[in-house]
Amino acid sequence: MTVALLAIVLFAAGLAPAAGPAAGGQRSAQPGTLPVSLQAPVHGMGDTRCSVCHSTEAWTKVTFDHERTGFPLRGRHAATTCSSCHVSSDFRAAVPTSCAACHKDVHAGELGMRCASCHDAESWRSRFNADAHRRTNFPLIGRHALIPCEECHLNQRDREFTRAAVECFTCHQADYLRAATISIDHLAAGFGTGCRDCHNPWSFRGGRFTGHDACFQLAPGPHAGIACLDCHTRLIGFVGTGACATNTASCTRCHFCPTMQQRHQQVAGFQCKDRKCYECHQFTPAAAIRPGRRP
């Protein structure tokens, strides 16, 4: 493959076809327009019917159905002067339809030659948006679709959209560390750096901790999506040992004791204590509470 690519470079360096006699020139390189006296006679070939395109009102008011050429003039092209593209004013000479033949490539050739993938004839402003980003290696899901491009594509200079790393941690390393001060010290708890294992791209809150289900089911049922600190009184300093013994879960924060005692009047040995709740209750995937195991 490397040899093939080297061959491409060599081709680019000197093995191109000879210049045609009607070379159109680098239109974009033309700083001004030619005087009319140098332009007009070229396409006035004696048998030309000037009135087909021109009127007596002004030479510059030209009417011509450009759609017949296979290159309909849409958007900004409709307002462009003929001589901007037909530099020699010889309308019989071919004019390349490639964008780069007329327009300077601000991406310096690094993004390929299919400009229409991102741009249209209305404006050079890119049509590429969060929806189109789905066709890259990093689909913009959740909040990622709702932040400015430059928050990830930091290089403003080269307009090449340098690729930010795909892995979450490269951008969210600070969030990983910040969690130690507001919820769980991810590092001390031994959590990995695969953010998506637990978190949703809309919010770091309401993380799914799959290991939690071994102690108390969260994934299915009414507690899905609940924030850690809605149940746990504190998690700073928490270390996951798998022993289901953080001693910080507080069911009675939401499930008030007076109400619970009234509901459990028929349950022998009921105690309104946090740990006692989940000794009995389990939750079905259908999110319905069913009577748990009785001790």
Binding site: A12, A19, A94, A101
Partner: peptide, 19 residues
Amino acid sequence: AFQSTGEVSSLVRYARQET
């Protein structure tokens, strides 16, 4: 750099190369 535009009927209608 080099750029060339051919006639309508020619095989190579446009060629560009830059190094």
